[in-house]
Amino acid sequence: MKIFVCVKQVPGVSEIKIDPKTNTLVREGVESVINPNDRNAIELALTLKEKHGAEVLVLSMGPPQAEEILRESIAMGADKGFLLTDRAFAGADTLATSYTLSLAIKKILKESDPEEKYLVICGAQAIDGDTGQVPPELAEELGIPQIAYVLSIELNEDKIVAERKFRAVEIVVIETKLPALISVLNDINKPRYPSMAGILKAHDNSKITYYNAQDLNADEAKIGLNGSSTEVWKIFAPERKGNRVILRGTLEEIVQQLCQNLKDDKIL
């Protein structure tokens, strides 16, 4: 069995923000990392590999620097990495991204054993975009069922049974057939760190394959900016309202003022 894991390189998110005074981006010490949910996806793939035996293939679409996260995935224990990199892929929204990823998966399957069963695991969403749209769109492009926000999974021959987060307090147990795609959040597992030996092995160059648009035989109208239906019109700092009345006085006075205000606001 093959397990495909799709990963994305993202900026460490808590540090990137807009300075509300100057409306400019502040990127202090932003370092690129594997998207956190994607690390959970890798961990799940490695756990399944340890239990059932599988080849874990990690895919990423991104600039050449994204090679680093593939190496880190291999250091964690993945077998091979595939970097889909081409200027033509730039500016992709989720539609174009899922198309490009699907081409790579199809190509890899075609070049090994097209009949082999497979599972695709994605992080449910990326911390930079937060859209969570690539996994379902990729499943649609591959024509396979998907289970999103999976909390646990059992693999049984060509069937999977997964627990899916459905509402805040409800979990649905779903059964579906392979091939399938699942997406995971950070509550499914705790990703391992790559061991030092893993890190040293990850720098064996034969483990990473590079695909450009031509290698994938991609339709130019469907990739990158051309293949994107949405576009960013503008970005800005979140507006913060609130009238900032700081109540002062003794504790009793403060509480009196607060209750009076809330009465005036017709809340109490």
């Binding site: 989720t94 539609l95 749209q133 379902p136 499943a139 994107s228 239906s229």
Partner: peptide, 23 residues
Amino acid sequence: ATPTGRDFAPRIAKKLNAGLTAD
């Protein structure tokens, strides 16, 4: 933009090649 909405909306968007903005 619930777990359910965010599950089916992208697949429809893909089928129709329509732009979808999340959340």
